[in-house]
Amino acid sequence: MKILVCISSVPDTTSKINFIENETQFDKSGVQYIINPNDEFGLTRAMWLKEKQNCEVHVISVGIVDTDPILRKALAIGADQAFRVDINPMDANQVAREISDFIKNKDYKLIIAGRESIDYNGGMVPGMIATLINANYVSNCVSLEVNQSNFKATRETDGGKENISGTLPLVIGGQKGLVEEKDLIIPNMRGIMMSRKKPLTIIEAKYQTFQTDTVKYEKLPPKGAIKLVNPEKINDLIDLLHNEAKVI
């Protein structure tokens, strides 16, 4: 079975967020890019399927040449092939359409994306792909089992969980729980050497019109100073929360 893992390249989780050009551009300088953490959980789950159920794992990213190191890392982790749609991603709809077009007429039974990218936090791409390719869809996916034609998955809801089963093809929006933090694969030397020989295919973009526009950015408002409460006078805290912050 062939699996496609969608990878978005995002600023490292420790990045300071700054804007330039009159707050109209995200400042990339000094920012380290990583595989979106939700996608890394999904990729690791795919590697287990490769090992145990003999699946072939492909990765895809919509992005310009800067994205290549992220795809190479996915290959070093163990993916078999990488694809990059060569365009700067502008919105979820565009990314979903590019990826859906790529999927058409190929026999991917399982498409693993992340619950959301940690940069724009859209949480839209997997649901859009599923609809475009007419596949089943599970968001906030925390566990997944598949065989040749069926799946069993668990979705995290606001107040609990939902077990969903059905037929492939399936698109998931995955997150931690698919695998654990300790299961994430750190590429070894051999993996890195092998990744250089694996194919990374560049695909021409098709969609140049976008449904949305980014008008500008804004930084968080500056925070006022903290008020410290003496631990011996904890009732002062209750008083502040009640009378000043009005939250209890």
């Binding site: 967020i17 804007f19 724009y120 976008f210 449904q211 949305t212 526009d213 980014t214 008008v215 500008k216 950015y217 804004e218 930084k219 968080l220």
Partner: peptide
């Protein structure tokens, strides 16, 4: 960590 203003077209 920030805000973005998005136009829906």
């Amino acid at each position: 960590k920030g805000f973005v203003f998005t136009e829906l077209k």
